[in-house]
Computed example of a mutant assay.
Amino acid sequence: MRTFFNIAAFAAGSQALITRGDSCCFHLTASGGASGSVGQLSDGQNRIGDNSLSPAEFCINSGAITDGNGRGCILTPPTTQLQCDEGATPTGGFSIDSSGKLEFQGSSKFIACETGQNGGLNIYTTESSALSNCKPIELMADSCAAPKPQPTSTSTSTAVATSASTASATATAPATPPANNGCPTTLTSGNFEFPHLIVPIDSSSPDTAAGTQFNGKVTSTVSSIFNFDIPQSDSGKTCSLVFLFPKQADLQTSSFTFSGDGKIDFAALSGIATKSTTFHNAPSVSKDLGTIAVSPGNQYVVSTFSCPAGQTVSYEMKNAGSTSLEFFEDFNPSP
């Protein structure tokens, strides 16, 4: 597993997932086992098939969705129902692919389950024994699709990357012609740079400074902070924080241990971690980037933003459920 800070020109044939730094708004239409526009109850529940509801508007920004009323759209536990709540921090990990399909953590598969009210069906990301009369669906957005790969004679790739195992930042510079706002999550080979600091902090030992480590760790008490140095040459480019989680069988010399529900909260910090950072003196959160339920064999775009050129930035990964994850950093590329 690797963490990359990858600066690359957009090349012909490259794959792009959309996670935009600027908000883009759209409506959704379901197809498959159930069809129709996605409407919304006054309490923020999103439904298909209830003809008394008008089509709802949604906006996506850095992988997180809000509704037309500005409410954060979340996956409510334990059933993963997609609804939008006042004051809620929206769940990250959403994207819209080049065909317009809404995806969550790279998958366009959703399910719709009957509510018994006006023929309406609620929307979920995963099946559950608590749900009944469910049908597989896909959700199509009427705008905000990721740009299709653009033919270009420019295919240079200059990578300044870190090989931290999981949290990764990718910077994409426009080729000629400009490649819009797409940002690849398939990271190619190039020149790599380790994160300059990986620091675990432990709430059960709040005044202990563990110093920099080769392993990242997330448990019920331990979170990890990653420092990235962003070159001045990235000025005017767009960066994405990307989480790559290969399967153990695909790794060459790295390894990891993983258990629990996989829920990890990602956050940008207000200051920079040092070797002396502890749980008590760690920088505060400047922006919560949302919670993602990770699992091996997947990759996730956590957030997209203007590159903070010439700066060192810190990001924290911490448990948001029952996750226990420890991984070793090495030189080998992510599969």
Rank of each mutant, 00 (worst) to 15 (best):
R2K: 15
T3K: 08
F4T: 09
A9Q: 13
A12C: 05
R20D: 15
G21D: 12
D22Y: 09
D22G: 09
G33N: 06
S37G: 11
Q45V: 11
S54G: 07
A56P: 02
S62L: 00
G63C: 06
G68E: 02
N69R: 07
G70P: 02
R71Q: 08
P77C: 05
T80N: 15
T80C: 06
T89A: 09
G92C: 10
D97K: 05
S99H: 11
T115S: 15
T115G: 12
L121Y: 14
Y124G: 07
E127F: 00
A141R: 03
S143Y: 01
P147Q: 10
P147G: 04
P149T: 06
P149C: 01
P151L: 00
T152C: 00
T152A: 03
T154M: 01
S155A: 10
A161K: 14
A161P: 14
S165H: 07
T166I: 11
A167W: 01
A171F: 11
P174K: 10
G182Y: 03
P184T: 05
P184K: 03
G190N: 12
N191M: 14
E193R: 03
P195I: 04
D202R: 06
S204N: 14
S204L: 05
T208Q: 13
G211T: 04
F214P: 05
K217Q: 13
S220D: 14
I230Q: 10
Q232Y: 11
Q232P: 09
S233M: 13
G236S: 09
G236K: 06
K237D: 14
T238F: 04
P246G: 06
K247N: 15
S254D: 15
S255N: 11
S255L: 01
S259V: 02
G262I: 04
K263E: 15
I264C: 08
A268L: 12
A268Y: 11
K275D: 15
F279Y: 15
P283W: 07
S284D: 13
V285K: 02
I292Y: 12
V294S: 05
P296E: 13
V301P: 05
P308R: 03
V313C: 11
E316I: 02
K318Q: 15
A320E: 12
S322Q: 11
E326H: 00
E326W: 01
E329P: 08
N332L: 10
P333W: 10
P333F: 08
